[in-house]
């Protein structure tokens, strides 16, 4: 049995190549969008940022995405009724089967955002690359968007703030919500929650360009069953959930 088996070698070679490819490819893809935009370049309408959350990988006792979001965006982390929460962990129990699911819920970055439709001043808007934002220079604090959002994704700043993160301006009397870490995305980085989830070893949140059919996220959306929350409203959110 000491003779070299060429067939086995070939097989090993092929499999290891495929294996290596599988390991490296996401890294390459990661690099692909990890260069950000050049200075002075506007967000492109050819891109649509989105997320795919694998609820199978999300644990009910893990809150790392929420903590990371709070730290990144300078939120207090408080959970009283007047505290801002841009992302929250929701525990679901199927009323009939009793199966439980844990998942993060944040702004779903709709293609047709009701918040932007109802906003009287146009402060709520959808950027060319699909990120739904509040232009706080225009927000008058009427909270109509909070009434209109089907995901309860928005918070109102109830108190004066100080020492905001330089990248994340926030202020009393205006409405705010998940920005998909727009300041990081514009630098070519991933949102803080995605990074934290990967760091925790779960990799439950996949972030990427869902308008690019070759992106990792698009391929995965094609390969596995996923759904949008309240898909019946036809808002086409950019956030999708697997295993719900």
């Amino acid at each position: 049995m000491s003779a070299i088996n060429p067939e086995r070698r070939k097989f090993l070679g092929k499999t290891s190549a495929v294996f290596a490819g599988l390991v490296i490819a996401p890294g390459v893809l990661l690099y692909d969008f990890a260069h950000g935009r050049a200075a002075g370049e506007a967000a492109s309408g050819r891109v649509r940022w989105g997320m795919l959350v694998d609820t199978g990988q999300c644990a009910s006792d893990c809150n790392d995405c929420v903590s990371a979001c709070n730290k990144e965006n300078g939120l207090s982390g408080g959970t009283s009724a007047t505290d801002s929460q841009w992302i929250r962990k929701v525990e679901l129990k199927d009323l009939r089967s009793g199966r439980t699911t844990s998942l993060p819920v944040m702004c779903q970055h709709c293609e047709h955002p009701p918040c932007a439709d109802v906003c009287p001043t146009g402060a709520s808007f959808r950027r060319a690359d699909g990120i739904v934002l509040v232009d706080k220079h225009r927000c008058i604090g009427c909270r109509y968007c909070m009434m209109a959002c089907p995901y309860k994704a928005r918070s109102f700043v109830h108190e004066p703030l100080t020492d905001q993160n330089p990248d994340v301006p926030r202020g009393k009397g205006t409405v705010e919500s998940c920005t998909l870490c727009v300041h990081r995305v514009d630098r070519g980085e991933q949102p803080a929650c995605v990074e934290a989830c990967a760091k925790a070893g779960r990799r439950a949140i996949l972030f990427g360009d869902i308008a690019d059919p070759e992106s990792e996220i698009s391929k995965r959306i094609r390969a596995v069953a996923s759904a949008q929350i309240r898909a019946d409203l036809m808002l086409n959110p950019g956030i999708r959930y697997e295993g719900m």
């Binding site: 935009r37 050049a38 200075a39 506007a42 967000a43 808007f125 727009v182 514009d186």
Partner: peptide
Amino acid sequence: QRDETMRSGVRGS
């Protein structure tokens, strides 16, 4: 600049 950055996403100006 504020409107450029906020609404169109122009960074690094």
